[in-house]
Design a protein around this nucleic acid. Sequence first.
DNA 1: CAACCGACCTGTTCGC
DNA 2: TGCGAACAGGTCGGTT
Length: 271
Amino acid sequence: MPELPEVETVVRGLRTPLIGETFIEVVSDWPRQLNGIDLPELQARLSGRSIQSINRRGKYLVLALDAGENLIIHLKMSGQLSVSNGQMPADKHVHTVFLLASGSELRFRDIRKFGRVYLVRDPEEVLGKLGQEPLEEEFTSEWLCQEMGARRRVLKPLLLDQTFIAGIGNIYADEALHRAAIHPRRQTNSLTTGECLALHEAIQTILSLAIEHEGSSIDAAYIKPDGGRGSMQSELRVYGRAGEPCHRCGSIIERVTLAGRGTHYCPGCQI
DNA sequence: CAACCGACCTGTTCGC
DNA sequence: TGCGAACAGGTCGGTT
């Protein structure tokens, strides 16, 4: 579930309670969540490590620790992180708990169990294949237009390709294409310069707006670390609005399956 | 290289 | 009310 804006919101929400904290112990009842590191090894390498910074790369959270270790977490479809004082018992979907020196604990809750935790000395081991950060300076309209022209692919699946641009997921791909008034099935090399500029603008605008709104909380799948909800769901113009009228042209929003994903678009104004 | 499909999981919603 | 099918913010690996 969480895409770039949701992960960014989680990162911001974890900084205050976690930076400067020290790991004491890890408890897990779902070893697969630890992505192949066995619990004793994780325990040994994490115990005594303090958290120096928390950042985001694509949809990954990166906790930089002392002694050159990095704890990297991907929430996939249903992962949630929260910091608890340990008083309230964790519910049955919390599968990994990181106990901290202050007595509080970082809880990784994940109904569908797709989320993963990595502990690596070199973050590139996990993040190495990711593409451009869409809100950073290197993501320019010149770069985007050149890449589009050079590729021969269907547009929406390319936007979801994390090795091309890192962080866009199914909601914001659909929303960016609607804002840019481009049909999701268009071929990348068929875009005009004007369309490509509009797409670049739309990607940056929708992601920034979603961060301002602290992400989209459509059901219980995404909540902030403090338990609150984002408000971006009420700003969405196509995602989840099949059968409703387009705010721009009044046509009825359609939902189709494209590359295996539900795809929402306006047949009236997305050309 | 690109497109497609099942796998990985559990829960919720929808149609009959 | 019950019950199965479809669907869900993501990615990976194997196959055409």
